[in-house]
Every structure is written in structure tokens, then in C-alpha cells.
Design a protein around this nucleic acid. Structure first.
Lengths: 129, 129
DNA sequence: GCATAATACTTTGCTAAGCTAGGTATGTTG
DNA sequence: CAACATACCTAGCTTAGCAAAGTATTATGC
């Protein structure tokens, strides 16, 4: 009984590029989701979806979390909950906070450059009655 | 005599994530560089570098251009120049302009979501006496 | 005129990363 | 105990950028 997930995303669909855009931004987003406090895996997925419209599959977030943990940017801790199953809570390490700040800086610069580039493209769209 | 290009970028360097960020943004950037008029390959590289700090290798831009051309988002035309060698000028097709506009919209939404996410991270940096 | 250099475009092979589609483990409910 | 829900993990595929090489055309040096 396969859980129906995100639609297949046809190989040559015009939306494919959008999927690629996400690459690399996801690590940063995962780190950012923990800025205000620890969350566990599925919670991160829900947080990102609600806060930034980023939709990640489980098969995407867990490898990312493991990668970040291997780099000591995250710490993980199993927590038993009364009503439920153990959860692995992730939190930012000191080095993770530091890295995230640098990533955020680089992101602003990167996205600024791109937005500048897109300025002329978007210009005429300011027809908003 | 191999041309020395972009520095090696050590495999596990802390900058690797930055390289990934670019993925997917490059197609859009390539299209955007042609918004104001046709350019040829190397010119696109120089344009992006000067306008947005995006540095692309030749082995990166040409596959992108061919991909975009195969999708009819770009048109290509060989042009002979007096002092020099033939150049392949790329220009946006109607469908390319249309797609770029949609990409730009999606980009603004995507980058807006991420910037919102990064808000708290960047907040404390406004200590500028 | 043939070698060298410069410019411009192309191709090959590698690697990294996300995604689909499974799977496992733990706990709850009938 | 069976069925289900929650939470986490893994394998294999695909895509895309990149480094490094190669080809083609024109200009320059001897």
C-alpha cells in the first residue's frame, strides 16, 4: 500500500527546473527550521511546508539531517513521548548556528544577484489594481 | 596546456553547499541574460559574472544553452564577424520569454519563502552603529 | 606557409543530491 | 494478535553542474 506522495513530476515537464532550484537550498532550510528550537524529522517537514511552501519528502529530509549531523552542525537526541513513539529531535550545534549565519549571508547575496538580474523581467508586472 | 579555471573546490569543503545552491538557478539566469538582447556563449558567462556574481564554466553554459534550445526557449544563429571567429548568438524565443516570466515569478515566491525563513537568523545582524 | 596563440564552441566522465518507493521499528486500538 | 498510525531509514535512479579535455576558425610570428 504505497502512500501516494508528490505527483510523479513528468520527466520533461516545464516544472522540472523548479525541482532543481531547491537543490542546495534544502540544507539551509533544514538548518533554519531549527533556529528557534529543536524539532524532529517529520516536524521539520511540516514546519517548512507551512512557513515557506517548501515541500520535502521523507526520503529527502533524513539524508540531509544525517549529513548535517555528520558535519556536527546538528545534534540529535532520542526522546520518548508518553502518547507515541520515540522521536529523534535535532538541534543546532554552536557550529551549526555559525554555519547557518554564513549560509544566510551567502543566500542573501546570491538571491540578491539573481533578483537584480530578474529586475527587468519582472518590471512590467507591477500592474496590480 | 590546461587553462586553470575555477579553483578545485575541495570535496568536503564547507563551500560545497554553495555550489549546489546554483543548480536550477542557472537555467533561469541564462535565460535572463538574454532578456535585453542576443548574446553569444562566452558573452553570457561574462555578463552573468559582472551582473550577478554568478561564475559559470564553459562546460556548464553550453549544455544549458543546448538544453534550452532543444526546448525552443532559445533560438541560435551563427554570425560571422570581421575580426574574429564565428559566434553563435542566442536569443529568447516567444516561448522563452513567456517561460522566463513564469520562472521569475516562481523564483520570487521561492526566494521570498526562504528569506522569510531566514529572517530570524539574520535579525541580530542589524547592529550597525 | 607552417607553427603558435587566441577565441569560441563541444564533449566525456565524474560526482553530488533529491526523489520515488520501498522498508523497519515502535506504539496504539479493536 | 492483527491492523493501523507514527516516525525514521535505505536503495537505486535520474539530473545537472563541473573539470578537463578536444575541435574549429582566425590571427600572428618566424
Amino acid at each position: 500500500m504505497a502512500k501516494p506522495r508528490i505527483p510523479p513530476a513528468n520527466g520533461d515537464s516545464p516544472d522540472r527546473w523548479e525541482a532543481q532550484l531547491r537543490k542546495g537550498a534544502l540544507e539551509m532550510a533544514a538548518l533554519a527550521s531549527l533556529w528557534q528550537g529543536p524539532l524532529y524529522g517529520l516536524e521539520i517537514i511540516r514546519f517548512l511546508e507551512s512557513q515557506s511552501s517548501l515541500v520535502l519528502a521523507e526520503g529527502t529530509i533524513y539524508p540531509i539531517l544525517n549529513r548535517l549531523k555528520a558535519e556536527d552542525l546538528l545534534a540529535a537526541e532520542w526522546v520518548e513521548v508518553e502518547t507515541g513513539h520515540p522521536r529523534k529531535y535535532y538541534s543546532l550545534t554552536e557550529s551549526g548556528r555559525h554555519r547557518l549565519r554564513r549560509m544566510a549571508d551567502a543566500w542573501m547575496s546570491f538571491s540578491g544577484g539573481l533578483s537584480r538580474l530578474l529586475g527587468p523581467v519582472l518590471e512590467r508586472q507591477e500592474i496590480a489594481p
